[in-house]
Computed example of a mutant assay.
Amino acid sequence: MWRLDYFQNTATGAIDKDPGEKDKSVVFNFLDDQKSGTISGHTFVNTVSGAYTLGPDCTFRIVSFGGSKVGEPTWSGKAWLPSDSTGGKGTYHVTDKKLILRFDQNPEQMVFEKSR
């Protein structure tokens, strides 16, 4: 499981941190076979799920993403992953404690921390 720690603007370096509302973090679980995978988890107020594929050189493509339909606060609303039709392609970088998703059409990358 990965908890979204902050968004970072790749042009300016500006960071938009998790507002830290108790028990309302954005948490995603990515499960794959190094070719394709699934996403499950939750935002502040919605349960989410999706699917993705992995490509060469740490590239990915979000095939689908969605969830329950309760209105999101602004910060967690940005955590809805774009899918194929809305620019859901990008690159990722993963270490034992961090996961960074950078979408081709978005200046903000998502920085996750490993969650227990």
Rank of each mutant, 00 (worst) to 15 (best):
G67W: 06
A11C: 03
F65Y: 08
L31N: 15
G55I: 05
W2D: 01
V94L: 03
D32F: 09
N29G: 14
L4C: 09
A79D: 04
S40Y: 00
I15Q: 14
F65K: 02
G66F: 03
V45G: 14
T38I: 12
E72S: 14
P107S: 09
N29K: 13
T10M: 05
V27H: 01
T91M: 05
W2G: 01
N29E: 15
T43I: 04
T91E: 02
D23Q: 13
M1I: 10
K97C: 05
L99Q: 06
K35P: 01
G50N: 03
T12M: 01
D96Q: 12
F103G: 11
F28T: 04
G88W: 00
E72D: 10
E113M: 05
N9G: 15
S40Q: 03
K114P: 13
L99M: 12
T10W: 00
W2N: 02
F103T: 10
D84T: 15
L99P: 01
V48C: 04
F7C: 12
G77L: 04
H93V: 13
F28I: 07
D16Q: 12
Y52L: 02
V26N: 03
A14D: 15
L31K: 15
T12Y: 11
V111G: 12
Q105G: 09
S68T: 15
K35N: 13
T47S: 15
R116L: 07
R3P: 02
F60A: 08
L54G: 06
T86A: 14
Y52N: 10
G88N: 01
T91A: 11
V70Y: 11
